[in-house]
Design a protein around this nucleic acid. Structure first.
Length: 152
DNA sequence: GCCAACGTTGGC
DNA sequence: GCCAACGTTGGC
């Protein structure tokens, strides 16, 4: 069992959208490293921090869990979709995605608060230059952060 | 295989 | 809008 953090721009898909949908496929990942995490390492039941990025208040906005193992991302075959990949054929899909299910929305834990915690100094998302949209979270980091959160 | 140019990410 | 950092592309 591994803990994860997944980034999403709330203008694209927010924790409120997931709360409404209850479950959703994590479409649109086009990074090999992030894809490999989904394909090889994410297991049904794994818990995930839902992180809001590229927005006025970046930070951890909620918790979800992996509800379905990786399967081909259908947006890669759709010419009209912005995630369309002409190199990808249904026989040889390049991109996969897991599905996640809503667990809870929390009072946002701002990025600045994460940075301020010495316990999280090694956290992947806080490292200089990190751009990966899906990262594993160490058990100790998960435990520390879940002590901070307030369900809202 | 190297590496410069380019595009993207994401915080500020 | 700016800029640092990174991944990808493509010429050689």
């Amino acid at each position: 069992m591994t803990y994860w953090l997944m980034k999403s721009e709330p203008g694209e898909y927010s924790i409120d959208d997931l709360k409404r949908d209850k479950q959703s496929a994590w479409f649109g990942v086009r990074s090999y490293q992030a894809r490999n995490f989904m394909r090889d390492d994410m297991k049904v039941g794994d818990q995930v921090f839902f992180y809001h990025s590229s927005c006025p208040e970046p930070g951890i906005a909620g918790i979800c869990k992996v509800a379905k193992a990786a399967a081909p991302d259908v947006t890669q075959f759709d010419k009209k979709n912005k995630h369309y990949d002409p190199k990808s054929k249904p026989e040889t899909p390049q991109w996969v995605c897991v599905e996640v299910a809503f667990v809870k929305k929390i009072k946002l834990i701002p990025l600045a608060a994460l940075r301020a915690a010495p316990e999280l100094a090694e956290m992947r998302i806080l490292q200089r230059g990190n751009r990966l949209s899906i990262t594993p979270v160490a058990d100790a980091e998960w435990n520390y952060i879940t002590k901070l959160l307030i369900v809202s």
